[in-house]
Amino acid sequence: MRRAVLPVVAVVAMIFVLWYAAAVALNAPWAQDRAKRAGVELSFSELVADTWAQDKPKLPAPHQVVAEIWKTTALKSVTSKRSLVFHSWITLSATLLGFAMGTALGIALAVGIVFNRVMDMSVMPWIIASQTIPILAIAPMIIVVLNAVGISGLLPKAMISMYLSFFPVVVGMVKGLRSPDHMQLDQMRTWNASGNQTFWRLRLPSSMPYLFTSLKVAMAASLVGAIVGELPTGAVAGLGARLLAGSYYGQTIQIWSALLMAAALAAALVALIGVIQRITLKRMGMA
């Protein structure tokens, strides 16, 4: 554990150095431009200070983003429309619902593929094809179609999350359900076990390591899906809406704070699955 600290700190420090340097480089033209119009000459330290404190910088400095996040989380009531916590929750709820639906769909399809030869031959190509369609292109369609049949709000966004998250689950679970070796399957056969018994007692437990790996990917994909689902709909709430509003008004600090929030959310969710994975597999003697 301790040995991991130094490299991590070093990498983070490096990122900050590069970030600050890039902020100077990218924001300097605007600072120079303004200084020129005002007829003043900027010293290097004034220039650097200016590039790290602009209102609408091309690249906000880390402390600006941190300050913005602090302002919009800790200092705002969570029910406020200006609270990032409020927007994160909107996105998180769609993410979790979509993730649950995607996982259920993924497992169901995987079971079908493993147990049914026709499905094995016919469904997999469609599943792969489904993932080659750019989600940005299909997201508005899903929203429009669902709206036309009277479904709006959380569900359409969750559907887009599901669309992205079922795929890793299908792929992982097909592999996992097929992971018992010949000997284990022969053994079940010697006991004259039914397909059902083999599934519940052998195939499903054997697939757990594969499932958890898939769930991590699915969770991250699900969050992307929820954010993308908020972009084309003119949604007024959610991290996607914050990104969109920020880009309309050139609020780069707001965009970056929403981006960092999304990243933190994804990291936390994936880490949570990681913890459940460790505990489960350890208890199953598979870790």
Binding site: D186, W191, Q197, L202, P205
Partner: peptide, 26 residues
């Protein structure tokens, strides 16, 4: 009863649970 070259015990079941497996199935 068939005994394979590898014990093929399920890691998520105790020894008792493993021996119970065919009995549950039957």
């Amino acid at each position: 009863g068939y005994v394979f070259q590898a014990a093929g015990l399920y890691p998520w079941r105790t020894i008792g649970g493993n021996i119970r497996l065919p009995l549950e199935i039957m």
